[in-house]
Amino acid sequence: MDELILNLKKEIIEVLNLEDVKPEDIIDDAPLFGEGLGLDSIDALELIVLMEKNYGIKLKDPAQGKEVFRSIRVMADYIQTNRTK
């Protein structure tokens, strides 16, 4: 799980162009949206694409993202359970 969390942080930094953010800056249980990283709705869509492209997970209901993207740890848990690649 720790390796998945670290990889996920690196992927998020890359795909969202978080130029000045390092993996260790992202706290595992901190909210991804609303504070901290300052992500917006376009970033949420980009995370949906990331889940599909890298892990073969299709979020059919965008509203589901609200729960899945609550924190890095929640996201990693979801990926571990549902990944197809």
Partner: peptide, 9 residues
Amino acid sequence: FFPSPSVFV
């Protein structure tokens, strides 16, 4: 086919 929303905007 992975269109990027952040590029699209």
